[in-house]
Structure formats: structure tokens, C-alpha cells
Design a protein around this nucleic acid. Structure first.
Lengths: 114, 114
DNA sequence: TCAACAGTTCCGAATTTCTGAACTACGGAA
DNA sequence: TTCCGTAGTTCAGAAATTCGGAACTGTTGA
């Protein structure tokens, strides 16, 4: 397992962010993580919206979100805790995350986890 | 040639919009159309940012933008005139287009065409 | 040392994207 | 009308991407 890559704020790319959030499944994952404030593990995220996401697919989704700079993942023992980088992204691209989550009908500061 | 499809405002999907604008080439096209206010023909759009976009690719890009609801295309004689649907999109998803164009470093109301 | 667990990587199948070539549609000239 | 040039679309095969089951890695606890 190679170490996780997280782009620096100055390296954030709008195209990567838009691409990551152009998949409703990833939006649900991101909204859940942003809503929890922290500690979204894969197990907790694999059953959003009724469908069970295969764990290899979930791992790919997390990678896309991570490499877009939307979340940060930290290993804590056996599990991975993910938290959002909303504030960092917002400092670089003001209003972007809020507008996107709003368009999807999700609040940036809370999540109803479907 | 089948007639052009344009989604109604109430059928706009955030995922389609984000996907369409997750490609910098499409963003350049869209910004150009939005900046011109109107009348972006394919010929006028095929050489943004230095690269010549093959016309079949350009046609696909236009289709993606059109079906996402970002532009409207109208046949005028032999050519197609495209204009942006910014206002309609904005009425449905307030601030979304502005935040995205701003993230890409483009103004929603003008274009410097690279 | 071993087993269970959380998540990643591998790899083949399915889907999507890209683009040159062929095609359609329209307008103008003869 | 017929023919030609222009604007853009559709087709089709190659290349790239995505999906997801199986195998794997790394960690903890017994």
C-alpha cells in the first residue's frame, strides 16, 4: 500500500473537484463526511442511498475525492478516518463547494445521510 | 440529423453540469459562448487555447454542454448559433455557474478567449 | 503466530471517449 | 433543377476509463 496522496491547497484543480463531484454516489459520500465533520470510515460509507457499494469501488471513490483535495484520509490503526477539506477548498475556490452541495440539495454543514 | 435536445430548466441535473464543466476544453468553449453573449459557431470555437479541436470532438463537446442545459443551439441556415443558458441554470442552481467559472479563473460575464 | 478486519491493488469485462472518414443539411451559383 | 462549398453530425474502430470480484497488505488482538 503506497502512502496516500493529498494535494496542497495551491495545487487544487477545479476540473478534478468538478469531476469528483459529478458522480452522485461520490457526492453522497462527500456530503456524509462533510456532515459528520470527521471520522467517515469506509464501512460507514458503503451503504448510502440504499445501494451497497462494493468495497473496491468505494476505495476508488475515496481515492478520487482524496486526490481532488476534497477529503483527507488518515490511518488510525486498522481503519481509515476521512474528514473533509471544505475550508481549504473554500479558501482557494470561494463558494464552490457550497454552490455544488446546494445544487444537489445538500447543505454543506449537515448531512441527512439519505 | 436528429433534432437538438435541450433539457427543460426543471430537468437540469447537477451531475451533468459538473461533468460537462469538469473538462477544461469544454469550460473554455462555454466561457467563450457565455462571454460572447451569443452566436458561438463551431468554427469560432475550434481553436481555443492553442489546440485545434477536431470537429467531431467539438461536436461531441457541444452535445455534452447542450444536454447538460448549459447552452442552447439554434440552426441559422448553414450554421449553428450557440448561446449560454446561464440565467436559466442560475435560476435553478443559484451561484453554481459563477462559482465554477470563478474557480477556473474566468468571469461569468466576459471572456478573454484565452 | 494466527485470525479477523479495513482497505488497497490487480485484472478482465463493460462502458466511455476520441477522432478521421463518411454523411446530412442548407444556401448559392449556373 | 443540379452541383458545389460550408457547417455540423454520425459512424466506427482504437484508446482510455470505470466497475467490481478476488487476491493482497497492513494492523490489532488473542
Amino acid at each position: 500500500m503506497r502512502p496516500l496522496f493529498h494535494p496542497a491547497v495551491e495545487d487544487l484543480k477545479p476540473e478534478a473537484i468538478l469531476y469528483a463531484l459529478s458522480d452522485p454516489e461520490r457526492v453522497a459520500i462527500f456530503a456524509q463526511i462533510a456532515g459528520l465533520g470527521s471520522s467517515g470510515t469506509c464501512a460507514a460509507l458503503s451503504n448510502l442511498g440504499g445501494r451497497v457499494i462494493p468495497k473496491s469501488s468505494l476505495s476508488q471513490h475515496m481515492k478520487v475525492l482524496r486526490e481532488a483535495g476534497l477529503i483527507r484520509g488518515e490511518r488510525h490503526g486498522v481503519e481509515m478516518r476521512n474528514h473533509s477539506r471544505c475550508q481549504e477548498v473554500d479558501s482557494r475556490f470561494p463558494g464552490l463547494i457550497a454552490a455544488i452541495l446546494n445544487a444537489y440539495g445538500r447543505s454543506p454543514d449537515q448531512s441527512d445521510a439519505d
